[in-house]
């Protein structure tokens, strides 16, 4: 949240700078099985965001100290490519990518049936090839499709989606300008079939009413994204059993 400034983010007719309505999502496209070497993979294009997720495993967890006797551990590595934004990003892990990797791993652990694979590790690599606000949500969505593609048992397909506040107005799915100059951002991980929330972060301030409206937008968008995810998986195998 870059602060209010004098940047106008809403037009006079109430629509947003890119012409979207307040509760309208950026266009989303998902493709499953994009990386032949991975056990499961997916690419999510959400607005100008491009996220690729690859899943490897379950495999023997190394180093042994990370093994859990009763369940698998999910090892997530979220990384933004140096060319993903207009300012070159220094390659490698940083504090932000470490945080996003951690919250993504915790969100995925709540849906994956980790108790099926004790002592093992499921490696999830999320690479952001192009970034335009909302990359952690795109990464989570891509990881969920990739996990399903890899045949990892899960309770649900987790969906990453965000709402926020610009010019004292709650909107769905912030773009770059809205993220930079808006007042709040509320990314969540939703299990669309049960309505559970697997992760929630909030940057900025929202009143209880604004929060409720933002969550209403998020749940509505989660249903739409979930359908796109299911279609992507079905499209990959629509020719019959592989």
């Amino acid at each position: 949240m870059g602060g209010y400034g004098d940047v106008q983010l809403l037009r006079d007719d109430g629509t947003r700078l890119d012409g979207r309505k307040l509760d309208e999502m950026r266009p989303m496209k998902i493709e499953a099985g994009v990386l032949p070497a991975a056990d499961g993979s997916a690419m999510v294009t959400h607005g100008l965001n491009v996220a690729v997720a690859a899943v490897y495993g379950p495999m023997e967890a190394h180093p042994r100290k990370i093994q859990r006797q009763d369940r698998a551990v999910i090892d997530v590595r979220y990384n933004m490519a140096p060319f993903s934004t207009s300012d070159r990003i220094r390659p490698g892990f940083n504090r932000r990518s470490r945080e996003i990797s951690k919250v993504t791993a915790e969100a995925l652990e709540s849906v994956v049936l980790v108790e099926r694979y004790p002592r093992s590790k499921i490696r999830v690599e999320i690479e952001i090839l192009a970034a335009e606000a909302g990359t952690r949500c795109a990464g989570i969505t891509a990881a969920a499709v990739a996990l399903a593609d890899a045949g990892i048992p899960m309770r649900d397909l987790i969906v990453g989606v965000a709402s926020g506040k610009i010019e004292d107005t709650v909107v769905l799915d912030l773009d770059k300008a809205e993220d930079n100059y808006g007042q709040a951002d509320l990314p969540v991980g939703i299990l669309p079939n049960t309505g559970e929330i697997a992760f929630l972060q909030m940057d900025g301030d929202l009143s209880p009413d604004e929060y409720n409206l933002a969550m209403e937008y998020n749940f509505k968008a989660a249903k739409e994204i979930h359908e796109i995810m299911v279609e992507a998986l079905q499209r990959r195998y629509e020719g019959g059993e592989a």
């Binding site: 849906v111 049960t194 998986l233 079905q234």
Partner: peptide, 17 residues
Amino acid sequence: MSKGQTGAEQRLVTPGM
């Protein structure tokens, strides 16, 4: 909850369906 796709013989299901 979403319904699975029904094929000629079998139904493809996804996690959570």
